[in-house]
Design a binder for these strands. Sequence first.
DNA 1: TGAAAGTCAAATGTCGACAATATTGCCGAC
DNA 2: GTCGGCAATATTGTCGACATTTGACTTTCA
Lengths: 230, 230
Amino acid sequence: MSQDRVALVYRQLRSMVERFDFKPESQINEVALAKKFGTSRTPVREALNRLVAEGYLTFQARRGFFVKPFNPDEVIALYETRVAIETEMIRLALARNSHDGLDALIFDLDRIVAQHQAAEDLEQLLDIDELFHLTIARGAKNHEMERILTNLNSRIRFFRLIDLKFKRSHPELKSEADVPGHRAILEQMRNGEAENAARTMRHHIERRRDEATEAAARAFASIYFADSTT
Amino acid sequence: MSQDRVALVYRQLRSMVERFDFKPESQINEVALAKKFGTSRTPVREALNRLVAEGYLTFQARRGFFVKPFNPDEVIALYETRVAIETEMIRLALARNSHDGLDALIFDLDRIVAQHQAAEDLEQLLDIDELFHLTIARGAKNHEMERILTNLNSRIRFFRLIDLKFKRSHPELKSEADVPGHRAILEQMRNGEAENAARTMRHHIERRRDEATEAAARAFASIYFADSTT
DNA sequence: TGAAAGTCAAATGTCGACAATATTGCCGAC
DNA sequence: GTCGGCAATATTGTCGACATTTGACTTTCA
């Protein structure tokens, strides 16, 4: 034992950051975290460095690690990046695959859409939604885009969760779920209409962007004034 | 003194990796590096962790850090990602900026194209070329895309350098420089033709992709059999 | 001879301590 | 009362050592 602390610490830290357990712009205290996790500072620092490189945190020499300032513009930027990546992914997935490969991909997507409808809780809903998009990424056979999309999704997740929770408690606002959007994309892919599918994907993501941006604005106060679990 | 070793080590390591001073797939020995840099293993490990998160290296628990296998497909993936990012960047830059903002952006781009023609060596040529694209990224006002593009460029750089060196020593193959392509993109942006500019950008990058892929194939042997500077 | 088990050197994983630096709090001067 | 500077304190940066694990080599036994 006592061998894989970095991985443990990394996972925990990342989910803490994703949930905004730390206040934005607050400094992250290495010794406090080390104590919390029962390790020395070494694994904590390694994990923090990874999180910086992945865009979750910032770092200033001799000052330490900081949580990125909370900023609706940043959320918008993340969604815009998704639009860029995902519209191109669709083109690649359709151009790159043989007929059989495409059939297999569409078969997988069909199943995911079906699961989507049966999702039981919000976390699961998001998992399945992200899986739909990630499966297309895999169909595009571009590891780099897959990597980037995974990263974007995890950084966006918190805001979507906020949005979904809000919608659930205000049924009158309930917008259409993601399922119809996914189904439309799927049909156009099935028909080989790359540009149409890309356009639908763009609008699909842009709608989510607007929802998440609103959610971010609503969440602003609660994040800034919530207790950080030191 | 003895305070900012990580930054030093990181920069050196990155340029070593970019130049393929390490053989692809070879394991990276932490103690050897530490000795080489005259530090302990701690700063080396932090730098290596960053390089993993940035896509330069891979890591296997209890086995260590490895150079990514050299793989023309990977180069193609990097270029495809650039297409995705940069075509969208152009749309954003044109949609997002006021008339004056756009004028300023185009003024900057004009100057960069002029510098481009006057570049003295290959490294400088690449710097200026990357600056053209990065300036558009800044015009798009999307930090995330800027970050990603910077990362992509630095990982692609080696292959472009190989290509340019090869072209220089085989003047009969000399393809058109990047300048005309940039100029065309610039003109279309000036006229507000977002979709045309995006399309030109796509073709521009795809041409580079083909050149770099060939260069990668040519470089294959020399990389795999070159001495690694332990 | 060949395969399994054991041994050992080398590499990684983690730690606690110390050095360098930044931040905070205090005190006196104006 | 406020400002600037100094001391005290907290935090980061780096190190060398030790623990654990891996992988290669050797030995042993069928």
